[in-house]
Design a protein around this nucleic acid. Sequence first.
DNA 1: ATGATGGACTGATACACGTCAGTCACAGGT
DNA 2: ACCTGTGACTGACGTGTATCAGTCCATCAT
Lengths: 220, 220
Amino acid sequence: MVLASLYKRRRTFVAGRDLVHQGQTDQAAYILFSGWACSYKLLEDGQRQIVDFQIPGDFLGLRSVLLHVSDHSIEPVTDIEVTEFHVADLLDAFAQTPRLATAVLWAASRDEAMVVEHLVDVGRRDAAERMAHFLLEIGARLALIGLGSKDGYACPLTQYHLADTLGLSAVHVNRVLRQLRESGLVTFRDGHVTFHDYDGLVELTEFDPGYLDQTGPLLK
Amino acid sequence: MVLASLYKRRRTFVAGRDLVHQGQTDQAAYILFSGWACSYKLLEDGQRQIVDFQIPGDFLGLRSVLLHVSDHSIEPVTDIEVTEFHVADLLDAFAQTPRLATAVLWAASRDEAMVVEHLVDVGRRDAAERMAHFLLEIGARLALIGLGSKDGYACPLTQYHLADTLGLSAVHVNRVLRQLRESGLVTFRDGHVTFHDYDGLVELTEFDPGYLDQTGPLLK
DNA sequence: ATGATGGACTGATACACGTCAGTCACAGGT
DNA sequence: ACCTGTGACTGACGTGTATCAGTCCATCAT
């Protein structure tokens, strides 16, 4: 893979300590190798909105660098390993490998599509639908990299993460999870998500994984 | 500008008739020349979530084409004029002009940043803050292309558009607009947005136009 | 053992916002 | 002159979710 030529060095970060801070203007971006991270925005009153989670294979901080300023922060949810590269090198590489540009653009489009889905969740679905849709999307993404299936997956998130992601209070997250569990759809417990009725969930949330499909130019 | 070499043909579309339908798999993308459009997602129960508005100078439908399927629809809010181009040509052009790739990637990042702001609006701000933030953002974007200022701007949107954008009911949009008007912050009336207290609005919404700044590679 | 910490979980209460069911003004068409 | 449709606007009422104020159970450090 062409990106290999850009690889600078392997680094690790511990859970909970931000890699990128809102407002920072830095030059390094990363590719996540193991663990989970999340990107979020902090509001003045202390609330936060988690925008997206990153799992192995995803870019970290690419947008910050392209826009020359970080409009958000990135926190490792677990301990993570990343590969650092310099965006200037990436942009230079476009000259030699135009297909690389197409691939990166495709990855950015996919990221945007996920944020759009997330927006629809928060804007137009009730708490249970949001939760179900979110758990399905993460599951589908993990399945693509071999870390999950239609039965379930390991999930290091706390209910607070879910609350900050879905625009709910942690208290309400708990109620909604109970509701989903009692109606036999999905269980979130002890770091593990278990799907009891995958098709039922898909129908409830109109879930369509089309935008996640790995038919992007990276793999062609 | 390099994009000029791609220009295919000028087209017009009338207000209200979708250019792109959810699920469509087409090859053309557009650059908006005059008028306003919006991209939105439709839910099965008839609700819709408007994701973003496009104003002159913005790409239309680029993401659909990159992902090979439209996960959303695009509707002209007013009559619009667009310039059509084929994405295959755009990608080919990357080979001759790598800087073009950087520019397009930058534009995509800016789009994503706007969706992220929108997500924070809907997830973590109350109705009045959302409304104010949205009106400010559109104002800032219009100001960049000379169609608005800190005093206000012409705005062809209906209160239904605002409702579908902000995840509110049209009824509540009306209440919130009244509230903002009566507290002397901003007036939305007769197709015109008038800022009465721009700084007050900025403070209320923590508005930071950094991510909109035209310091992207397109103009460098 | 003891206390501190963090995550899961719960009941009671409050309110922001949605829904329902309208009115009013205006524009176009017949 | 009348109908139809669209957008703005409003009051009454219902509900989903936040907030408050806890409990309980692990884990970890002392």
